[in-house]
Design a protein around this nucleic acid. Structure first.
Length: 271
DNA sequence: AATCGCGCCTGACGGC
DNA sequence: TGCCGTCAGGCGCGAT
């Protein structure tokens, strides 16, 4: 489920409930995720104060003085704010309990997510160290994409979904941003002009921003940390709209698999 | 070196 | 009603 806007929505949703609280205990009900949840999490964190709730790409970073809990929601993960009176349900893997009684409950049916503890700077962690620039960084510009894409034969959609190029642009928002910048998803990244990249960089930022404002999009099973669905899905231009008329030219939206990912575009507007 | 595509899982959905 | 095939928003890693 969650792409960057959803993760940011979740970050903003949980932070006020837990920031500056002490970890009380960690209950690992089902350690089976992408990588097994290790017992050191429940040993290290209790007693430590949570100093910040940050995000890097689609990772949530819960920082203390000495450690960082790194949470990824994979395809189907969610976090819920709850308390001990509420019984755990199917696929509730981990409870992160705080001194004020608040529990952040991690649920993940497909188990593609992960919960890791590190005592280094999380940005140096193997999984985060190779990540590209944040889309909201001021250095993320058309020029940046243009320079990086010279001589790349890879298609533009794969290029912008590559986390080493820009972090956190998943399938939905790649489709939407390409539509809004009128670029065909199969065009070679190396054969796009700087001015078109300017437009693309802007549209990636705008699309993500809009989705964050809308509280994340809902396709199937997304619900934010309070359990309420987001509303961005109403604003999608192409994603999931195969056969529907393009909102600009009325030609039907095409769907096609590109690198194993379902892709949606208007073959008339996008070149 | 760059790029592709497999596989990790469960669950929802559509067709028969 | 049930069984089966297909698909899903991610991402690391091995193969090419």
């Amino acid at each position: 489920m969650p792409e960057l806007p959803e993760v940011e929505t979740i970050r903003r949703g949980i932070k006020p409930h837990i920031n500056n609280q002490k970890f009380q205990k960690i209950i690992i009900r089902n350690a089976s995720l992408r990588w097994p949840v290790t017992a050191d999490i429940s040993q290290c964190l209790p007693g430590q104060k949570l100093l910040s709730v940050e995000r890097r790409a689609k990772y949530l970073l819960l920082k203390t003085n000495s450690h960082c809990l790194v949470i990824h929601l994979g395809m189907s993960g969610s976090l819920k704010i709850t308390d001990a009176t509420v019984a755990a349900e199917k696929h509730d893997h981990v409870d992160i309990c705080f001194d004020n009684g608040v529990i952040v409950r991690y649920n993940d049916p497909r188990r593609f997510g992960s919960i890791l503890l590190t005592d280094q700077n999380p940005l140096q962690h193997k999984l985060l160290a190779c990540l590209g620039i944040e889309p909201f960084d001021k250095l993320f510009t058309g020029k940046y994409l243009y320079d990086l894409s010279r001589n790349k034969k890879q298609c533009i959609k794969s290029f912008i979904m590559n986390a080493q190029v820009v972090a956190g642009v998943g399938n939905i928002y790649a489709n939407e941003a390409l539509f809004k910048s009128a670029i065909h998803p199969l065009r070679s990244a190396g054969r796009i002009s700087c001015s078109r990249y300017d437009r693309l960089a802007t549209q990636i930022q705008k699309t993500l921003e809009l989705a964050i404002e809308a509280g994340g999009s809902t396709i199937r099973d997304f619900s934010n940390s309070d359990g309420k669905p987001g509303y961005f899905s109403q604003q999608l231009c192409v994603y999931g709209l195969a056969g529907k008329p393009c909102r600009v030219c009325n030609h039907p939206i095409i769907s096609k698999r590109i690198n194993q990912r379902n892709s949606f575009y208007c073959a008339t507007c996008q070149r």
